[in-house]
Design a protein around this nucleic acid. Structure first.
Lengths: 136, 136
DNA sequence: TTGGACTTACGAAGGTCTTAGTATTTACTC
DNA sequence: GAGTAAATACTAAGACCTTCGTAAGTCCAA
């Protein structure tokens, strides 16, 4: 009997570069085996099967995904929704690089991110809705 | 004669955790010596002087700061303005975690970052200005 | 039930990051 | 010019990350 799923001392908060790459595919797929995820990566990525398996196993140890055995293979599923992780990441970035003021962040985005006029309009509409809700 | 400022193969784009911590102090100070930066850190940080010196020397190798010798000590200065680095970081985050659509990012920020009504109003004003400029 | 294809578990190499100790250099004073 | 306090340069340890090879386990078909 193999040992799987050992605990770890410190809670890991954020995905590493490669883990984010994998999680992105899992978010898109909903769930997937090592082979499924590997198939989603760009062809020029050229990652060995065992590397992908290792990455997913580590992600499970860090509680970023759960696995379920189907026949011979494990199927992995995100433990964290994409938008929740987006929020978490933005909060962290706001703290670390924007003095904890997310408004500065939005300002920076709106000012120099080369957003289309349509995108800007959408955001304004979003703000209008938000500000109306606050009134009630 | 010591060897300082050796080149490096690959261009480094982003600050590491500790480098960001140091760069934040340099941005606030404008410039500073090892001792200056160390003095700015939280007292409970307890970092050895030589560690701080090493970090700044590495940051110079990576072209994040320049140094100038004044008397016995080096004074370090950022090579990159804070807002430029903020923009760069946001662009990267948008690509990696938001499918390259910064509008989604703003939406996430506005929706769950707990911004005050005043902050939201300011952003809307900013957008209004941006959208008017585009018309002309 | 045994062979083969595929899967998982483990270990290790090579890299970067963070930290700090030791050794060397430097500027200034007497 | 020698001594001294402070700064810089170097080295290295320990942690984590990425990658992959090898070994061991597993399912199925003939």
């Amino acid at each position: 009997m193999a040992v799987r799923g050992m605990r770890q001392k410190k809670k890991v908060e954020f995905l590493t570069e490669v883990e984010l790459e994998f999680m992105t595919e899992l978010w898109a797929l909903g769930e997937g085996s090592v082979r499924d995820v590997l198939a989603q990566l760009a062809p020029e990525r050229n990652l060995a099967y065992t590397s992908a398996a290792t990455i997913l196993r580590i992600m499970e140890q860090k509680n970023f995904v759960t696995s379920e055995k189907r026949g011979k293979t494990f199927v992995y599923k995100p433990m964290l929704a994409k938008d929740a992780y987006q929020s978490k990441t933005l909060r962290n970035l706001s703290d670390k690089l924007f003095d904890g003021t997310p408004a500065t962040m939005v300002a920076r985005l709106v000012n120099d991110q080369g957003m289309s006029e349509q995108a800007l309009e959408e955001i304004r509409a979003l703000l209008d809705r938000r500000l109306k809700d606050n009134d009630s």
